[in-house]
Amino acid sequence: MKTLLSFGHGYSAQALKRLLPDDWTVIGTTRSADKAARLLADGVDPRVWPGADMRPALDCATHLLISAAPNEDGDPVLQHLRGEILSRADTFEWVGYLSTTGVYGDHSGDWVDEDAPLTPATKRGQLRVKAEAEWRAMGLPLHIFRLAGIYGPGRGPFAKVRNGTARRIIKQGQVFSRTHVEDIAQVLWASINRPNPGAAYNVCDDDPAPPEDVIAYAAKLLNLPIPQAEDFDTAEMTPMARSFYAESKKVKNDRIKDELGVILKYPDYRSGLDALLAAGTD
C-alpha cells in the first residue's frame, strides 16, 4: 500500500493524483475547509493545515510531494514539521519538491540545463533557491522538479483572448519555457517509478518561445483578432507583471527524457493549446 502525502495539494499535484493507481492513498493539505471539501470529492483525504495534526499522516506516508511556496522565513513545511519529518526519514521511499526554472535567473535567451548556476533575478526565485537548499540538507530521498510556466485545463490563454484582456508585450529577445500540467504529472510519476535521490529535473516542453507568439496562436485558433503589440519599455504594467520579464532563457529538458524515459504529450505550446480547445477545457 502506497500513500502520497501532498503538501499544498494544488493544480500539479491534482494532475499527478489522476495518474496514480487505485491502490494508492493520497492525503492532501489545503488552507481552507472549502478547498478541503473539493479535495474530498476528488478522492483525496484532506487536511486543513497549518492547524491539523500531521503526525498520523506522516506515519503512513511512503511518498511526499511538496508544492507549498516558500516565504521570507523559508519553506513552510519545514518551518512547522522539520523534526517530525526527520524522525521518519527512513520511512519515505521518495520525496518530490516542486521548484521553478526561475532559480536559474536571467541568461539573455541562452540555454540552461540542470547544472547551470542558480542565480535568480527575482525575489521569488531567491526564495526557491533557499527552499531547495533546505530540503537538500534534510538527507531525504529528494527529487527536485524545476517547473517552467504551467498551463493546462482552465489555465490557457483563451479566456483572456476572448474577453479582450490578452496583451502581446514585446521585449526584444524575450523567451519563456512552459509546460502542460499533464506532462508535469507524467514526469513525477516516472520519477516515482525510477527514483534517483539527489536528482534535479527541468520540466518544460521542447519549444521555448516569446510570450506574444502564444497569444497570437491562441487568437488564430479562436478566429479572433490578434491583440496589438505593445512595447515592453512603454507598456503600463504592474511591478509583478513586469518582473516576469526580468529573466529570459531557454530551458533544456533532456534529463527527463534520458533518465526517466518521458515522452512529452505536448512537446510545444501549439499541440497543447490545440488539445485544450478540442477538449473544451480551455
Rank of each mutant, 00 (worst) to 15 (best):
V112G: 06
T119R: 11
W111V: 03
R124G: 13
S108Q: 14
H107N: 13
P117W: 03
T122V: 09
R136A: 12
H107Q: 14
A131Q: 02
T119M: 09
W135I: 04
A131V: 02
D106A: 13
E114Y: 11
D115W: 05
A137W: 09
G105K: 09
P117S: 05
D115K: 11
A133Q: 14
E134R: 11
E114S: 10
V129N: 01
A121G: 15
D110Y: 08
P120I: 00
G109Y: 03
G109C: 09
A133D: 12
P120C: 02
E132R: 06
E114G: 10
E132T: 04
D113V: 00
A133G: 07
H107G: 03
A133L: 11
A137Q: 14
P117K: 07
S108N: 13
V112A: 10
R136E: 14
S108G: 09
W111I: 04
R128I: 00
A131H: 00
S108A: 15
L127W: 04
S108F: 11
A116K: 05
R128D: 00
A131S: 15
A116P: 04
K130I: 13
E114D: 13
H107W: 14
D115P: 02
W135H: 10
A131M: 02
R124F: 06
Q126V: 04
R128S: 00
P120Y: 01
D110Q: 15
G125Q: 05
E132L: 05
W111T: 03
G109N: 09
R136D: 08
R124Q: 13
D113I: 00
D113R: 01
A116F: 03
G109H: 03
T122D: 10
K123E: 15
P117Q: 08
P120W: 00
E114I: 05
A133I: 06
R124D: 09
D115C: 07
E134S: 12
A133R: 14
K123L: 14
A116D: 06
V112W: 07
D106I: 13
L118M: 07
H107I: 07
R124E: 06
A116N: 07
L127D: 05
E134N: 12
V112D: 08
P120S: 04
A131Y: 01
E132M: 04
A137F: 11
K130P: 06
W135A: 08
K123S: 14
R124T: 13
L118A: 07
E134Y: 07
A137T: 11
V129I: 02
G105W: 01
T119D: 08
E132W: 01
D115F: 06
D115I: 01
